[in-house]
Simulated scan of single mutants.
Amino acid sequence: MARIGIFFGTDTGKTRKVAKQIKKAYDDETMDKPVNVNKADPDAFAAYDYLILGTPTLGSGDLPGLSADAQEESWEEFLPKIEDKDFSGKTIALFGLGDQEGYPDEYVDALVVLYDFFSDRGANIVGAWPTDGYEFASSQSVIDDKFVGLALDLDNQADKTDERVAAWLAQIAPAFDLPT
């Protein structure tokens, strides 16, 4: 088993695309192939000491899931399956997708839901990301003037995605015991 698990929720496939982009930076011994949480085994998920988790924000700041009109089950349905697990001693980095122009008042809000869920279960969350270069009105995922994870906008700032992903991976590398 690789040291790092990468899991994502998605509705349109954009979060899956970013998860695959992140995976390409590492070999199979370091990071497993990305897995959609609607296909994830809760015990296999919890077995990783290092996790990278991605989510889009749907509607008015929701995690993807059936109640948010997602096409399939996603984070909303997966989190209850792992709510009794202890994530103490585990390191987790988060990335989220949103639309600053279409949803400026809830930009990447779903990130904070994952942040709170895993923080409450003892995880060490790394990878806070600066808000510089973004244009949004409000985000619940901003704590201490930073996003709780990497924020991406493939709708309006797709040209910045590669640079942001590379910089974020370099930033989290020490916490994941990765070469920079």
Results as ranks from 00 to 15, higher is better:
residue 43 D to L: 13
residue 85 K to D: 13
residue 109 D to C: 04
residue 73 E to Q: 13
residue 59 G to S: 05
residue 32 D to E: 13
residue 122 G to L: 04
residue 107 Y to T: 07
residue 103 Y to P: 01
residue 106 E to Y: 13
residue 167 A to L: 11
residue 162 D to C: 00
residue 169 L to P: 02
residue 37 V to T: 06
residue 84 D to L: 10
residue 125 I to G: 05
residue 170 A to T: 15
residue 144 D to G: 00
residue 55 T to Y: 07
residue 173 A to N: 12
residue 109 D to A: 11
residue 38 N to M: 07
residue 61 G to A: 06
residue 119 S to P: 06
residue 134 Y to A: 06
residue 85 K to C: 06
residue 98 G to P: 03
residue 18 V to N: 02
residue 2 A to V: 05
residue 27 D to N: 15
residue 38 N to D: 10
residue 49 D to M: 10
residue 54 G to E: 03
residue 166 A to D: 13
residue 126 V to N: 04
residue 72 E to M: 06
residue 81 K to D: 11
residue 135 E to S: 13
residue 62 D to E: 15
residue 150 L to R: 00
residue 180 T to I: 14
residue 97 L to Q: 05
residue 14 K to E: 14
residue 23 K to G: 00
residue 48 Y to V: 04
residue 106 E to S: 14
residue 7 F to D: 01
residue 152 L to I: 03
residue 50 Y to Q: 14
residue 111 L to K: 08
residue 58 L to R: 12
residue 170 A to V: 12
residue 94 L to Y: 04
residue 176 F to C: 11
residue 53 L to A: 03
residue 66 L to V: 14
residue 80 P to F: 06
residue 78 F to L: 09
residue 144 D to Q: 10
residue 149 G to P: 01
residue 3 R to E: 15
residue 64 P to G: 07
residue 19 A to T: 07
residue 109 D to N: 14
residue 134 Y to S: 07
residue 96 G to P: 05
residue 26 Y to C: 12
residue 119 S to G: 04
residue 4 I to V: 15
residue 104 P to T: 12
residue 92 I to C: 09
residue 160 K to R: 03
residue 175 A to D: 15
residue 114 L to E: 09
residue 34 P to Y: 09
residue 131 T to R: 07
residue 7 F to P: 01
residue 167 A to H: 06
residue 1 M to Q: 11
residue 63 L to A: 08
residue 93 A to L: 08
residue 128 A to I: 02
residue 84 D to E: 12
residue 84 D to C: 01
residue 7 F to V: 03
residue 69 D to A: 14
residue 103 Y to H: 12
residue 127 G to S: 07
residue 105 D to W: 13
residue 11 D to K: 14
residue 85 K to W: 03
residue 113 V to D: 10
residue 3 R to F: 09
residue 140 Q to P: 00
residue 158 A to D: 08
residue 42 P to L: 05
residue 81 K to H: 08
residue 11 D to W: 09
residue 109 D to Y: 09
residue 107 Y to K: 09
residue 90 K to L: 04
residue 9 G to M: 02
residue 121 R to Y: 00
residue 123 A to W: 02
residue 38 N to T: 01
residue 155 D to V: 10
residue 158 A to L: 01
residue 132 D to M: 05
residue 45 F to L: 07
residue 87 F to S: 10
residue 122 G to H: 05
residue 39 K to D: 10
residue 57 T to R: 06
residue 92 I to S: 07
residue 14 K to N: 15
residue 82 I to C: 09
residue 13 G to F: 12
residue 96 G to R: 05
residue 18 V to L: 05
residue 103 Y to K: 11
residue 28 D to A: 14
residue 180 T to Y: 12
residue 80 P to C: 08
residue 178 L to Q: 14
residue 41 D to C: 08
residue 4 I to A: 10
residue 32 D to M: 10
residue 175 A to V: 09
residue 89 G to S: 10
residue 54 G to I: 02
residue 156 N to I: 00
residue 45 F to S: 04
residue 97 L to K: 07
residue 33 K to D: 12
residue 180 T to D: 15
residue 2 A to C: 07
residue 38 N to I: 02
residue 111 L to Y: 06
